[in-house]
Each structure stands twice: as structure tokens, then as C-alpha cells.
Design a protein around this nucleic acid. Structure first.
Length: 226
DNA sequence: GATATGATCACCT
DNA sequence: GGTGATCATATCG
């Protein structure tokens, strides 16, 4: 059963208010779970798509998180992470995909939240057209790169302000999920012990969980660990 | 200037 | 459940 309106009861045709900078200020592992249930919205010439966030990951820029892109300082790539909160940090991954993050720390601190997955609640038809490979509805935005595909987020959106009215990409309040789970982050090789991945417990659009296993299997040879 | 690596997805078995 | 694709970034020489 796919609960379209789990929890809130707020009509989804009416987007909630925009998030404010105050909503995003704080430790990334505190702000991240608060983003669950919020609506990420893109308005394009061809139409609007909105995704209710069901899975996020926190990345801290305060030095204790070697998995964060900001760990090496404000390099050209990670520079946006050190800017004001509410900006969109987009990066290219594996030579194929784009992934989206929300900057969630004060100016000068490189913390961000990776938006990993969500449910398409507005513009599903358009999202399907953008993601022909997706069969089930839950696959439309399940996974960081799928999410950006469904919303047509790309390099052009780098640095976009998500908390400004009229912005092409925005973050609106929505009904929070009834229950939130936490666990280790996915797809990283360092600091894998931090439970900084958060997801809506009852969501079916959450990345496949790899209990204790390695998410990636590089070519044979390397990697003598077991 | 060259190379190793990665916050992944789609498709194959 | 496992593997190939593919390139920007960072680091090293």
C-alpha cells in the first residue's frame, strides 16, 4: 500500500511554506532528519515536479567527517558548501550522475545534507517521462541520482537558492513522516560508523539497505579487507 | 601533466 | 546479487 499522505493530512496540491535559513541552521545530523517530509520542487518550462523527501544523509564540515566533500577545505568543487545555508550543492558522480545537497550550516562551515530519495507527489507524468527506466512509482526518485533526474536538476542549478520565492528549485515544508529511522551512510568508505543516514521508516522509496556489506565492489585485486 | 578515486545506476545472470 | 560504464576532482610527480 502506498500511503500518499502518510501522517500530515495536508493537501499536497498546496505546497507548504518555504523553508527559512533558520530551519537549516544547526548540526547537519539534526537538520537532516527534519528535512524528511519536506517537498523539493522544480519549476521548469515543461511543468512542475515535487518530491517528498524520504531519505537524506548528513555531511559535516567541521573536520570530523572525512566523508564530506568539504573535508579538504573550500576547494572549487566544494566551495558552495561553505556559503550561506539554503543553497543547492550539485556534484557530478561516477562520471554519469548528478547528486543534490542542501547547504545547512552558517557561512564558512561546509556542512550539507545529501538528498537521497523521495516520493514524487506532483508531476508524476513528467517525472516518468524523464525516467523511462523506472517501472514502479517508487523507483522514480529512489536514489540520489534518480532524484535529480526526476526533478531535472543538473549543473545549471549549482548554487541555486532553495529558500527564495520564485527560485527555480525550492524547498517547502510538508507533513513530517510518522516515524524516522537512522543508520549508517551508504556508498562511502570512511566514517561508515556514523548513523547519519535518515529515512522515513514507512517509505518504500528508500535506497536498498546493505546490512554491513560493501555497497561497491571494485575490480578484483585491490581491497584486501574482509 | 598523469593517474587514482568516487556520497551511483542500469542491466545482466 | 554482481559488474561495467564513465568523467570531474584531487593529489602526486
Amino acid at each position: 500500500m502506498v500511503g500518499v499522505l502518510s501522517g500530515g493530512g495536508r493537501p499536497l496540491s498546496e505546497l507548504g511554506p518555504l523553508l527559512t535559513a533558520g530551519d537549516l541552521l544547526g548540526q547537519p545530523d539534526v537538520v537532516a532528519p527534519a528535512l524528511l517530509g519536506c517537498l523539493l520542487v522544480t519549476d521548469r518550462p515543461e511543468g512542475r515536479v515535487a518530491v517528498r523527501l524520504t531519505e537524506v544523509e548528513a555531511y559535516s564540515g567541521e573536520g570530523m567527517d572525512p566523508a564530506a566533500h568539504s573535508h579538504r577545505g573550500p576547494t572549487p568543487r566544494a566551495e558552495i558548501m561553505f556559503g550561506p545555508p539554503g543553497r543547492l550543492y550539485v556534484y557530478f558522480s561516477y562520471g554519469v550522475h548528478w547528486c543534490a545537497n542542501v547547504v545547512v550550516a552558517p557561512d564558512g562551515v561546509g556542512s550539507a545534507v545529501l538528498l537521497r530519495a523521495g516520493d514524487v507527489v506532483v508531476g508524476e507524468e513528467l517525472a516518468r517521462a524523464r525516467r523511462p527506466a523506472a517501472r514502479a512509482s517508487r523507483d522514480l526518485a529512489r536514489g540520489p541520482a534518480r532524484l535529480t533526474q526526476a526533478l531535472a536538476i543538473g549543473p545549471e542549478d549549482k548554487g541555486a537558492c532553495l529558500i527564495e520565492p520564485g527560485s527555480r528549485v525550492r524547498l517547502h515544508h510538508g507533513g513530517p513522516p510518522s516515524s524516522v529511522s537512522a543508520g549508517p551512510r551508504i556508498g562511502i568508505s570512511q566514517a561508515t560508523d556514523l548513523p547519519w543516514r535518515f529515512w522515513a521508516t514507512d517509505a518504500d522509496s528508500v535506497s536498498v539497505f546493505r546490512p554491513g556489506g560493501r555497497p561497491r565492489s571494485r575490480r578484483a585485486g585491490q581491497d584486501g579487507r574482509s
